[in-house]
Design a protein around this nucleic acid. Structure first.
Lengths: 116, 116
DNA sequence: AATACATACTATGTGTAACACAGTATATAT
DNA sequence: ATATATACTGTGTTACACATAGTATGTATT
């Protein structure tokens, strides 16, 4: 029968996804300091423990390119066409700022955890 | 004239908000190991460097209660009625899991950053 | 040579939730 | 009497993830 919608999905899974969401953007930007294309980028993140669905990663890449953080090139490699992405100049700047924010958040969370 | 929509808002601000979003949930849950009401919870988070808009915090609290992670009580204190929230049993469990996930993400991000 | 599987990306619909903005209301200070 | 801080509620818009499905080519297997 299996009639599962987003509603039945395990509550913790959803919260975990929400927690990852913002972090994934940082992870993607950081990875793209070196050129990658979607498929291997996804594998790389997966290996690092940051699994991301195709239907999430590809739209994210396009969105980040639209926002000017990435630049891409459609190129042939090993007889196959692939879209290669890498960080733009602006992307580098934003990445640095986001990493700083990340530190701040980390510090805040650690302070909260020490409270109780 | 001022015709600002979400689109004109500074790009970095949006990304920062996205990064915070998931973390805020963890921060809120962690803070609510001790009872708080909305207003002081917000101030506390603000002091920790995790500023959150009223229009974001209150709906979040209601949502987390609906999901069973928080329990609340409408009570008078200093001649004013306030809604006091605290972590439920299930909330404690979820918080522990989310903190674990947080460690994992942190470790992954650090590995990425060491790469280049 | 046919089939299956891995690779690689695209397209569309739906649901959720943040955020902007505005509103309600009481206590305290000036 | 008025302003300000406190404390919460309500509504609409926008944006994005995720689910799902589709397209298409290369390589390995039988």
């Amino acid at each position: 029968m299996k009639n599962s919608t987003k509603l039945d999905v395990d509550l913790f899974e959803n919260l975990k996804l929400e927690l990852r969401r913002g972090c994934l953007i940082v992870a993607v930007l950081a990875q793209l300091r070196q050129e990658h294309y979607g498929y291997t980028l996804r594998k790389a993140l997966d290996d690092l423990g940051l699994a991301i669905d195709e239907g999430t990663l590809y739209p994210l890449l396009r969105r980040l390119e639209t926002q000017g953080l990435l630049v891409s090139e459609w190129r042939e490699e090993n007889k196959r066409n692939k879209r290669f992405y890498k960080l733009s100049r602006q992307g580098e700047l934003i990445l640095q700022q986001l990493l700083q924010e990340w530190q701040t958040i980390n510090a805040s969370l650690e302070r909260i955890l020490q409270e109780a």
